[in-house]
Design a protein around this nucleic acid. Sequence first.
DNA 1: TTGACACATTCCGATACAGGCATACGATTG
DNA 2: CAATCGTATGCCTGTATCGGAATGTGTCAA
Lengths: 120, 120
Amino acid sequence: MARAATTSDAFNAIAEPQRREILVLLRGGERPVTELARDLGMSQPQASKHLRVLREVGLVRVRGAGKQRLYGLDARGLRPVHEWVGGFERFWNETFDRLDEYVRDLKQARQEEPPDDDDQ
Amino acid sequence: MARAATTSDAFNAIAEPQRREILVLLRGGERPVTELARDLGMSQPQASKHLRVLREVGLVRVRGAGKQRLYGLDARGLRPVHEWVGGFERFWNETFDRLDEYVRDLKQARQEEPPDDDDQ
DNA sequence: TTGACACATTCCGATACAGGCATACGATTG
DNA sequence: CAATCGTATGCCTGTATCGGAATGTGTCAA
């Protein structure tokens, strides 16, 4: 086996800096491929390929408009990512030095209440 | 050239499902390599490799404890990720059908105020 | 020192990615 | 229909993985 396919989920899709830039641009509204390619300084085929990945993970949708194909943002797939990362918020808010102590406090608090089990 | 190195930033580091699982486990406190490998059903070398990547992007720190090496979470590197993804929150909260209309409203609102320019 | 334990590193094979280039495809226009 | 514009796809190269197996390294105990 080898690396996980980039086309599989939103986490992989946004691991690519250029794809992140595409998504940022699309926050401003729908755009045709050529325009995206020009604004980001990449070739048209490259833009199409990145858009294909984004489409396959559902972060982007297409709409034919004459000769053009307008790509638009569909950010719903980013919500799970945001939630997963958000699960670490209390840790980056803690001082680095206090981390272990904090974790100990957490463990103790859990033993005094019914378990929480908020994995994943 | 090929894909951006996995070792480069947090976005790439968390694109790997197994590395995400490691981070989740480490929320419970420091752990030695073998224990992580066992709990996640992966080989010890694989665990070490993933931990190396996480260490290089700064999401994890190590501490020698006798024969063992205790890995602990350092979630500060996840904050920029959370913020970047959070920049799309207003979009996934909008109904899909209303997206374009919403974008039009945004554009109009911007023209009535000094520009905002919140890219990146 | 020797042995044992806990990890890290290296080498291997397979995969798959990003980027460049050429080309095929679809819709519009003439 | 032919020409053209806007995109998508295929092929190729170089590189970067992930996973497995074997081996190297560091620490402690006898």
